[in-house]
Write a protein that binds this DNA or RNA. Structure first.
Lengths: 341, 341
DNA sequence: AATGGCTTCCAAAGCGCTTTCAAATATGTA
DNA sequence: TACATATTTGAAAGCGCTTTGGAAGCCATT
């Protein structure tokens, strides 16, 4: 059943039926009702491809999913997606997901944009000096970035958490507890959040004349395995760090295993603060020693970004172009006074 | 730049250019090269919406993502998606993801199918007597199901693992080790895999004249929290089970925390076998007591299903309609002889 | 009766592609 | 040379929708 058939059935023109369906004012209310009733009865659904061809709008937002053989699937990605979805479903929007090799991000994003399959783009996994930004700006397609790109003028629409402040605060707390030997277990070095978190730590330490040693910094994918490996390395240092900052509760999972295996006590021998993305699977309060965390819900961020994106497509703005969310510092049992040497 | 402009530029008809691009044989090789070169230079990309309208093919596979405020995002889902993506990217396919309330699955799937945005459907989270199957069959759109639907004639295309055999084998192993008091920590009761796994356990026990007690069975979302809760319940039973079968390593995570908190030793006081979906985040060999598991890679299943789906759309079949994968039973340290009473 | 302004509807022109059908040219055969 | 057969190209008709530019009918106003 297509528009032509439906209009013939009703003895109306396609024009009128189309207008009736799309809520245009210049159609008699009686006629509109007649049309709506016929739609119900016949089960007519407009062909999306035709609609898109005619209007240019697709009712969908696009995103690139980093993937490759051997590439780790990321819980954070799934959690964020859930947030996006939660909002999208309210507006009858869907996603178009373009899987792409992480090294091919720029090209994949461009392909997605010009594919004509999406009205707006969402971009994550921001890097320092991210090359995608220039491309996005040249595209004249609405987009929102999750995170920011260190070293780039922040004149693009983004939603980010204040990573620097979060890790600055966390470091300060540990300094107040008397710690002097710090280590940072971070995400991949090129990612924006990793850069900023490191800066936050370094700045807080510098105020006390302390430095973050090279061998007390690790950069890796945020899996528990990598957390284990990094922590084992830290624990073997001659001047073992007593204060650990950790970019994810997933990393912390492995780190804590290393602490236990070394026969050390979390919150006594080693203090640890992790960033908590509020993953439903990994609640810091459920750890055997509940974790002190900097918290910000990844999922809530997803909801918010979907709101902005969909709102922009539907011209339902205006939305703030830049949003910087504060994180909460939640003190639990994994932090304690520095052990006496 | 559209086809018309490109063809005018080349002094050719749209027909010829279109044919050259789509690999039709009836075009001179010199002409084809000229066209291809012009495409490179101009950066021309065919409009997907128009292409779709003309051909009816969208180059995409659709799936419904269960989501709702408060709904847990599922690591298993993300991992599977990664597998699908890995294969899709090789064929320049993408996904259209329709987020939907889990209670609205049938309708959401239908909406997705008739949206005209997808060429094929993928369906997961199968239930017993799943109502989506009848709908799918009536749709005349290719689809592949991950899992099966207990109680329904298996005459639809699926890929499943042999859940019954997996849990049957696991139970047998524990029986051989002398265990007599069993508990099953399962996924949501209405899901197909949960039904079959339970059947596998029950059948193995029945051979020895044993039964699986009602209070030794738990059904829940597969999170570590639920694992903890279920295990705590098991441990408080007067006749405490010594052999635990567990539907996911995620559940096991919580279960083991409960075991530890109770001061019991895994592999001695309590034996546990979990099903391992090969989540990169949760490797059973990395548990403090390495886990005995039944293993089957969720991601590999994703790759395979994408292959079949894309192959069908591209008419590159024939593919087997039904595939049942065996799981591997991998014995590690979490299983040991039943403790003497 | 003529004019103008509303309201309500329609015919037809796209949107950018694919594909059918036909024509033009090149090649081979008797 | 004449004819049949490949090979290569093109004109035009869709695909199913939206939207422009009228037009018809109706009313109130001059």
């Amino acid at each position: 059943m297509n528009l032509k058939q439906l209009s013939e059935l009703l003895g109306l023109s396609q024009t009128t039926v189309s207008r009736a369906l799309n809520g245009y004012p210049e159609v008699n209310e009686d006629t509109r009702e007649r049309v709506l009733r016929a739609v119900k009865e016949t089960g007519y659904r407009p062909n999306k491809a035709a609609q898109r061809l005619a209007t240019g709008k697709a009712g969908s937002i696009g995103l690139v999913m980093p993937t490759a053989p051997g590439h780790q699937s990321d819980v954070h990605f799934g959690e964020f997606l859930t947030g996006l979805g939660e909002e999208a479903v309210r507006h009858d929007f869907h996603f178009v997901i373009m899987p792409a090799d992480p090294d091919d991000e720029v090209a994949a994003l461009r392909r997605l944009a010009i594919s004509g399959n999406v009205d707006a783009l969402f971009v994550a996994y921001m890097r320092g000096h991210d090359p995608r930004l220039a491309m996005l700006k040249s595209l004249s397609m609405p987009f929102v970035v999750h995170g920011r790109s260190f070293g780039t003028e922040p004149d693009y629409p983004y939603l980010d958490i204040d990573n620097e402040a979060a890790f600055n605060d966390a470091t300060r707390l540990l300094l107040q507890l008397g710690h002097t030997r710090f280590a940072l277990m971070n995400g991949p070095a090129h990612l924006d959040f990793a850069i900023r978190r490191r800066n936050g730590v370094v700045a807080a330490l510098a105020e006390r004349g302390l430095e973050l040693a090279e061998d007390c910094t690790s950069h890796s994918v945020m899996s528990d395995e990598e957390g284990l490996i990094a922590m084992e390395r830290f624990l073997q240092l001659p001047e073992r760090p007593t204060a650990i900052l950790c970019s994810s509760t997933v990393l912390a999972l492995g780190a804590i295993r290393a602490v236990n295996q070394a026969g050390l006590k979390l919150g006594e021998d080693i203090s640890l603060i992790a960033h908590d993305d509020v993953l439903p699977l990994l609640k810091p309060e459920n750890f055997s020693v509940p974790l002190t965390t900097t918290r910000s819900s990844l999922r809530a961020a997803g909801v918010r970004i979907a709101q902005r994106l969909i709102g922009t497509v539907k011209q339902a703005g205006p939305f703030p172009e830049q949003e910087l969310w504060k994180t909460e510092l939640i003190v639990r049992a994994s932090t304690g006074p520095a052990p006496q040497a």
